[in-house]
């Protein structure tokens, strides 16, 4: 069985903390550029230009794209033939976040207690999602999540009778209600099916999917396009000041569910849609 020292995971996460906060993936950048070229509202176009200028400055000067460098969401796909050695995996992940956020001059945005608050001072703990997969590799996906957009996310336990239209209306309405709050243009992650928690996790994982690809099922692939079009007709626009660009992408994850239910979750991300993966 292959052995992997968790120190390597710490190193990788420290590096990813900085990298994801300073630069965006190509699919996100090209969608922003494409939407800017298509935008017909002059004010909206100008805001999209500013957003692109910000991406350039962050890269050139090696500073975070956004001051909200997020709650560290760490997705670990752990091969079932890997033996992790050298200490606790959870501690190794949090040490990587601690180092990355401290050494990288990233904002410490985590409070110890949801009601009594109190900053933990090092952006730990991370939210860690573990999946066991075939193989002998570990894939780490790091996605710092800003809360301006997280706060605008919604979930509904719809009755099956609500049907396709009910699901679609709920998703579009979530973006309409979010309005100018989550720093539009947004990326919309949707989870349909599973359980209450399962739908929410699928929605979060949908934010990690490439914006230039589609759901493997043509039915949901078409729904991704249709919903994106409907959302961009809402007129919310960049920053909520109107325009054709309310979302730059929408991805859907689906799963089987119970005969009595149709859970739908919508996780909203701002245009600073940060995530990056490495495989060890």
């Amino acid at each position: 069985m292959r052995e992997l020292d968790v120190k390597e995971i710490t190193e990788a996460i420290a590096g990813l903390s900085k990298e994801t906060n300073v630069s965006l993936s190509e699919d996100v950048k090209s969608r922003i550029c494409m939407m800017r070229m298509k935008e017909t509202d002059e004010g909206a176009k100008s805001i999209l230009e500013t957003i692109e200028k910000n991406i350039k400055i962050a890269g050139e000067e090696d500073i975070p794209l956004c001051q909200d460098t997020g709650l560290a969401c760490v997705f670990l796909d752990i091969g079932q033939d890997v033996h992790l050695v050298g200490g606790s995996l959870k501690d190794a992940v949090n040490e990587g976040v601690r180092r990355g956020y401290t050494e990288g001059y990233l904002r410490k945005s985590v409070v110890t207690d949801p009601i009594r608050r109190g900053n933990t001072g090092d952006n730990t703990p991370a939210r860690i999602i573990y999946d066991i997969v075939p193989g002998d590799k570990v894939t780490i996906t790091f996605a710092p999540k800003g809360f301006g957009s997280e706060n605008m996310s919604r979930i509904a336990m719809l009755p099956p009778a609500a049907g396709e239209e009910g699901v679609k209306d709920f998703i579009v309405d979530a973006v309409r209600q979010a309005g100018g709050n989550p720093c539009p243009p947004v990326v919309v992650g949707v989870g349909i099916g599973s359980t209450f928690d399962g739908a929410a996790l699928m929605a979060k994982k949908a934010l990690l999917l490439p914006l230039d690809e589609h759901h493997e099922d043509p039915y949901y692939a078409a729904m991704e396009d249709e919903l994106l079009e409907r959302i961009n007709k809402l007129g919310v626009g960049p920053q909520g000041f109107g325009g054709d660009t309310t979302a730059i992408g929408l991805r859907i994850n689906t799963a089987p569910t119970h005969i009595a239910g149709m859970p739908v979750a919508v996780n909203i991300n701002c245009h600073v849609a940060r995530h990056k993966s490495v495989t060890l």
């Binding site: 962050a58 500073i63 975070p64 794209l65 956004c66 001051q67 909200d68 460098t69 001059y105 990233l106 904002r107 945005s109 301006g148 706060n151 709050n181 989550p182």
Partner: peptide, 19 residues
């Protein structure tokens, strides 16, 4: 705003608005 920490040689880190 809650800015990110100032790296050496800069007065402030990144500093955009919060909701």
């Amino acid at each position: 705003v809650g800015p990110s920490p100032a790296p050496p040689g800069r007065p402030i880190g990144s500093a955009g608005p919060t909701t």
